[in-house]
Design a protein around this nucleic acid. Structure first.
Lengths: 213, 213
DNA sequence: TAGGATTTCCTACAGCTGTAGGGTAACTTG
DNA sequence: CAAGTTACCCTACAGCTGTAGGAAATCCTA
């Protein structure tokens, strides 16, 4: 009997790690220069040196593999975002700096992100990114407001209460990134950071009489 | 020879209109209570009373049909958005009112939108919505700023120059809508409008020294 | 209404999908 | 190391996909 994708917890078995790593690595390679919709299970499995039936022992379809494969990469990207909380500890200089790094990181793997998040990409991955970003922003803002670390909530746990400003901010960032990628990254990361940062601060430095709630 | 999907212009031929209308209507019905990923070409074609090969004479796959089928519906939704331009002609009352209508409209067809835009939906449709919304906001803001009607650009033509604030705003709205839908529309449309409107106005009523460009 | 053009449908085919059963090899644990 | 567990691979199968060629029906135009 094969446990089949129910426990996301890291398995001790080397074979599992080896197989999943091979599949994820292969998918990342393929997605660098081909749209996700053009990648078949048979294709990934063969190139990874794994039988097709073994693929299905781990993932339901290519989208699920894509989500798993890019989770670490995308989470790193999200965690590197500046905290736009009210009067954050970071001076504005640091914040725009990390925003610039965010866009630069995006541009480095532009082909990959376009393939995953563009019209031929995966709704599953897109949804994952949106939720993760929303959760990360929720945690970051809460941390900036209270000045303290909330439990051990690294934004990886998805149980975040309804938070409209967080969803708003997350969508906005994704919208800017998607628009930039789709247009071929014409502006430099520094320009993008300079254009985006004022919009972010505007959201969180509003007079209190305009704040919701 | 079959002209096959190249001209999007309305054909004079009744057969074409009949076939496309039947397919689009059928898809909308199916998507109301089933995820898009669970809908096959064979399924749609049969229910629409159209042969499978005729389907491929009109659309490349289910995603392309979905994009065509929901274009009118979604464009109506987008056009109904309030103009968040600086000191728009609308008093704030009207703006929140149309925002409320926007969320109400969304809730009415929640199943459909979740199925199309959620994790089991279509990256193609998601991308379409993002681009259309960005274009619509670009046009609306420009119109509010100049006070005049730009040519005949109904926001349906996609050739919009790079506009970071528009992409930012569009993404933000989509993010809020997606988050709300995904959580089961717990808050009322009026609450959502009240929570979202201040964030929108904050973006467009910033002191000039913070404006980009 | 006749004629040419276009659409629809049928048949066929190779390839991919997702699932099932069962044999073999690798791993973990005691 | 022995025993039990688990993962991997193979085979097979029904169903869907996307494409092609060609016959029949429908449509537009003169």
């Amino acid at each position: 009997m094969v446990t089949t994708r129910d426990s996301n917890a890291p398995t001790g078995d080397r074979r599992v790690r080896r197989t999943q790593a091979a599949l994820q690595r292969t998918l990342i390679q393929l997605v660098e220069d081909r749209d996700l919709s053009q990648i078949s299970v048979a294709d990934v499995a063969e190139r990874a040196g794994v039988s097709r039936s073994t693929f299905y022992d781990h993932y339901r379809d290519v989208h699920e593999l894509a989500e798993a494969a890019c989770t670490a990469m995308i989470d790193d990207l999200i965690e590197s975002l500046p905290s736009p909380g009210p009067d954050s500890a970071d001076p504005t200089q640091d914040a725009t700096q990390s925003l610039r790094a965010f866009f630069a990181n995006l541009a480095e793997r532009a082909g990959l992100y376009r393939s995953l998040l563009g019209p031929q990409g995966s709704a599953r991955v897109i949804d994952h990114v949106r939720r993760r970003t929303t959760a990360a922003i929720h945690v970051a803002v809460r941390r900036a407001e209270t000045g303290a670390e909330p439990p051990a909530q690294t934004a990886a746990s998805m149980d975040i209460p309804h938070d409209v400003p967080a969803a708003f901010t997350a969508g906005a960032l994704i919208g800017v990134a998607a628009d930039w990628l789709q247009r071929g990254c014409l502006r430099t990361p520094a320009e993008m950071a300079a254009l985006t940062w004022p919009l972010l601060t505007a959201l969180y430095h509003v007079d209190t009489d305009m704040r919701p709630g």
